[in-house]
Nucleic acid binder design. Structure first.
Ligand code: ZN
Ligand code: ZN
Length: 649
DNA sequence: TCCTTGGTGATT
DNA sequence: ATCACCAAGGAG
């Protein structure tokens, strides 16, 4: 008789023992479906043995229900990555292992068809060439490619990729969002033919399985994927590229809160791989490492093809003349100029929906979500109020719930409101909106790119997603309507995030034809705004790094955030105090921040508290205390651990 | 008395 | 995580 010890995807690490039918040959690393409690669950075999393990009742043992095909068997490499996640990100080992293994269903593989129109590659310019040369000559295996927007980072990537292909090795290319895939995939196919595969959550189960197997077997040499693709095993990996490395989407928000950029670093240690991270606005952490030669800096300081950087102007809101609620006279005139030349305009606004809150005219009461401590947003298209944190929705009430006043004001503008404003100002122009509400439709991005390319869109408005690395040559004006909104966030990275947004949005303008940028701001003198005006990332970096040093924030220390959640606020408060008391017993008080109410103190019916730990040295000491706390049981309180958090919400 | 709610324990 | 079980407490 043989027994398989199986881990189930649970927040604790207990091995369960199963038997199996004689025609099955399961081995360590095999993925299985097993009966567990009332229903079947996914499992991973961590051991197969002849003896029944101690303390297991032979009567209770059930048979493995289903064995995944052999190509899904986890490799030693995958086990090692899981071990590192478990240790570094403080999750359970089984959560780490399941994260590395990925979500697959044992269905028939299905190949996705691709088409390509091959062309002769362009010659690199001097700067691009010297990046490639420095890459080849460096002893370092990790690189930061810092290139201004429009400097042709992709051309450098392509040259590095073609070198790796000549050596018959594989390439893993990560990008922050699915929405960037279609545009880039086309460029990849045209350059490298059909030796390429996509891996992200838009694939069907069969297509995912094909991509997994093909890359693992070395049948496909280039893989283009999002965050979770960083775990894909390869036959012979030569290069990992992380494009737009500053994007927070590389960090997973639920347990284990891993960072794909960290996993890629680990792969450099484990495999014979080099890593290139590219951005016009790198994370402070990355640039700091580059400055200290821990990683090698490659720079592109000019736009490709002698194209000029767009001229950036600021408009001081509150002092300036406006043509409508969100549009200054200056911006209006510039939009007109671009449109008269039949060019395109791109406008960024931070919120979706119509208005961000509804306030009573008489008593100033704001309508809030019943599950969250946050105002409800009004969506005109739905004609309903909507919570952006939990999805709660209700009709706009006839009158104020507090005082009965029938007049309610809509305050704070979103994409829908801006769409309204612009269609009144430019009634005969085509205005197109991109946000979470419009982009959920299938093939949305495909249609959107086609329309942009064929200039069927005159004014493009959108949230975060329009600032992310798109290349639209006819955009000659880009604008941020309110540059300051992030600056008010209670987060030490708010200035960095503002700088990144402004430089990225500015970077969408003037990529084909000379263009300009207008930033509307209440604080145009802030160094984050100033850095965008000067097109100088370094200007920002020098100022920000000083403040990080003085304030003891990354990159000078590491952070671990404990997020405590509970239904009962009193209980949460006393548990938080108790946890901080335990922390203070073995850690210096200056390294413990909190407990503090989270910026959004109540989400989905749970109150939230944050405790922030600053780890300067001796990581082990801190981890030991945290592990101890996780082993205690604070009833009714859920503790989530976020190592190297990218936000504080 | 019936029914909802919260805490506890087990899952192989 | 998920589910069953049991005890407690409130409405009828
Ligand atoms: Zn009122
Ligand atoms: Zn809500």
């Amino acid at each position: 008789m043989q027994y398989a010890q199986v881990l189930i995807n649970l927040p604790f690490d207990k091995k369960y023992t199963y038997s199996f039918s004689t025609d099955m040959r399961p081995e360590k690393g095999d993925r299985v479906i097993v009966p567990f409690g009332k229903k079947n669950r996914k499992g991973i075999i961590i051991n197969v043995q002849k003896e029944l393990p101690d303390g297991v009742d032979a009567e209770k043992i059930k048979n493995i229900e289903k064995l995944y095909p052999e190509y899904f068997r986890l490799t030693e490499f995958q086990f090692e990555i899981a071990r590192r996640i478990w240790r570094y990100y403080l999750s359970s080992y089984s959560q780490a292992l399941f994260t590395v293994a990925g979500a697959f269903k044992p269905v028939r593989i299905k190949k996705k068809k691709l088409t390509s129109n091959p062309y002769t590659p362009f010659l690199l310019n001097k700067e691009q060439e010297s990046c490639v040369r420095e890459f080849n000559e460096s002893d370092n295996n990790i690189f930061l490619l810092h290139g201004v927007t429009g400097s042709g980072k992709t051309e450098v990537y392509f040259e590095l990729i073609s070198q790796v292909l000549k050596n018959k090795k594989q390439i893993l290319f990560l990008l922050p969002e699915i929405s960037l895939t279609p545009q880039l995939l086309k460029r990849f196919c045209d350059r490298f033919g059909e030796d390429i595969c996509v891996f992200n959550s838009s694939l069907s189960n069969g297509e995912r399985n094909y991509a997994f197997k093909a890359f693992k077997d070395g049948k496909v040499r280039i893989l283009l994927g999002t965050r979770s693709a960083v775990f894909l095993p390869a036959q012979d990996l030569g290069l990992i590229i992380i494009d737009e490395e500053h994007e927070n989407t590389f960090k997973q928000q639920d347990t284990p809160c891993y960072d794909a950029r960290m996993i890629a670093n680990w792969r450099v240690e484990l495999e014979e791989v080099r890593l290139v991270m590219g951005s016009a606005t790198p994370r402070m952490e990355s640039f700091y490492k580059a400055r200290r030669n821990i990683i090698k800096l490659l720079s592109l300081e000019k736009r490709a093809d002698n194209r000029k950087m767009p001229e950036v102007n600021t408009v001081t809101m509150g002092e300036t003349d406006k043509v409508s609620k969100n549009i200054s006279r200056r911006l209006y005139n510039s939009i007109n100029e671009s449109l008269q030349r039949r060019e395109q305009v791109l406008i960024f606004i931070n919120r979706r929906g119509y208005s961000s809150f509804v306030m009573c005219q008489a008593c100033n009461e704001v309508i809030r979500c019943i599950n969250c401590n946050i105002s409800l947003n009004y969506h005109k298209k739905l004609d309903r109020l909507l919570c952006h944190y939990c999805g709660y929705t209700k009709r706009l009430p006839e009158a104020c719930g507090e005082c009965g006043e029938p007049e309610l004001k809509l305050i704070g503008s979103g994409t829908e409101k801006l769409e309204d404003e612009l269609s009144k100002l430019f009634p005969e122009k085509n205005i197109f909106r991109v946000d979470k509400d419009t982009s959920s439709k299938k093939d949305f991005y495909f249609d959107f790119f086609e329309k942009m390319k064929q200039r069927k869109i005159d004014i493009l408005i959108g949230t975060q997603m329009i600032g992310k690395g798109f290349d639209f040559p006819y955009v000659t004006l880009s604008s941020v309507l309110c540059a300051d909104f992030i600056l008010d966030f209670p987060d030490f990275r708010s200035a960095e995030r503002t700088m990144q947004l402004l430089i990225q949005v500015a970077g969408r303008s003037g990529r084909g034809i000379e263009g300009k940028v207008i930033i509307q701001s209440y604080a145009p003198d802030h160094y984050a705004v100033e850095s965008a005006v000067r097109h100088s990332y370094q200007y920002f970096y020098e100022k920000e790094i000083e403040s990080r040093k003085i304030m003891r924030f990354p990159p000078f220390i590491s952070l671990v955030r404990l997020i405590l959640r509970a239904k009962d606020k009193r209980n949460l408060f006393s548990s938080s105090r108790e946890i901080v008391r335990i922390l203070k017993e073995s850690l210096p008080a200056k390294d413990i921040l909190g407990p503090a109410e989270a910026p959004i103190s109540y989400i989905k019916g749970r109150h939230r508290f944050n405790i922030l730990l600053k780890l300067s040295s001796n990581r082990k000491k801190y981890y030991k205390v945290i592990r101890n706390i996780l082993e205690n049981n604070y009833k009714g309180v859920d503790i989530k651990i976020d190592v190297d958090p990218v936000d504080m919400f």
